[in-house]
Write a protein that binds this DNA or RNA. Structure first.
Lengths: 192, 192
DNA sequence: GTGCTACTGAAACGACTGTTTCAGTAGGAT
DNA sequence: ATCCTACTGAAACAGTCGTTTCAGTAGCAC
């Protein structure tokens, strides 16, 4: 009944997961398959299945690994100064070159979870919206946090960040997208 | 050398394309395969291959079909009043329930083209950014259209629309997302 | 009738998928 | 030496994939 749960901790598992994660950042998650992946990380399909239980288990572990990197940012003290100020800080993180692969993976998983609501992606899109809205909420003064205006402000800040990120991923134009984000968020910052 | 180009026009082809398009709006483009698709549209893999040349050809035709529906909106007179005003009009189109499937398909294709720069998706992401920026540019007064501020305004409007759309697709919360879009674009409207 | 074009069905091809079966090997504990 | 756990290699399984091969059928032109 336990359906072949994989050993959740193991040095070898961690090592292969890390290498698989790098592979996935470069090649995406959609078209992945065990044999090429195993060859790239210096292992075999047999071992990956042994360590992760199934392909789904591997994908789940990879998504968790990606989320851990995202949480790096989320866990940092969100700071104060309102959602707009927090949004500006988040943007410098999003626009950094070294996060490009992670963000591509993020978009891919988001899209996938919109279409295929079953499988390892599950509620990825909805969860991640909630994660980020919560981060922005934490930056708002507690006294107004539950007002409709505050909710709308968070939603707006998140939308601008996500939309600019999509643009940046497609065009690579950091200057133009950064200017747009600043034009929106800097004036907004005064009010909180 | 002609690599089996498919007959580009044919009544039967149009009919099957239309039905395949409906199937794709419901099931997504990523995990598509000929046999289930053929069964769903009342045909066979053999016929789809005959009419579209290859699976890639079919996908390309489906993307073109989707783009045609999008162009419906793009072709309408963009109107004046600046990019923000145009953005507000576009949002009512984006937020309409009957476009949900198309937008999911859009996100999926966008994500795919970021990762897999070869194949039918090709430059989909970049092209679509340019399409929409051009639409918004057309709504700006010609006199300021080429200024940096105008470029930034277009970029911002597009980012808000895209980001809010992502939120809407994941949460279905039209009220909250619409409020965010309005909060951003209505004040912006005065200035042009 | 013959010929031509458009379309279709059935079956097979080779390549690839996730997964399983069986048979190990290396290392440490007892 | 024995046992146990952790890991691994090779091969096969059943299934799906896009595509091809071969053999048609229906309709219209002449």
């Amino acid at each position: 009944m336990m359906s072949a749960a994989s050993p959740p901790e193991s040095a070898r598992r961690d090592e292969l997961l890390e290498r698989a994660y790098e592979y996935v950042l470069a090649h995406g998650l959609a078209g992945i398959s065990l044999r090429p992946l195993a060859a790239a990380v210096g292992s075999s399909p047999r071992v990956l299945l042994f360590l992760f239980g199934s392909k789904d288990g591997l994908v789940r572990a990879l998504l968790a690994r990606a989320r851990a990197q995202e949480t790096e940012l989320l866990a940092r003290p969100p700071g104060e100064g309102g959602a707009a100020a927090a949004g500006l800080r988040v943007w410098t993180w999003l626009a950094a070159d070294e996060h490009r692969g992670l963000l591509r993976l993020w978009v891919e998983s988001y899209a996938r979870s919109l279409i295929d609501p079953v499988g390892p992606w599950d509620e990825f899109a909805r969860e991640t919206v909630d994660d980020w809205l919560a981060l922005l909420a934490a930056a708002q003064p507690a006294s107004i946090r539950e007002t409709e205006a505050a909710v709308a402000e968070r939603t707006l800040v998140l939308a601008v960040l996500r939309g600019a990120m999509l643009d940046l991923l497609a065009t690579g134009d950091r200057e133009r997208t950064t200017r747009a984000v600043r034009d929106c968020l800097v004036p907004l910052r005064r009010r909180s």
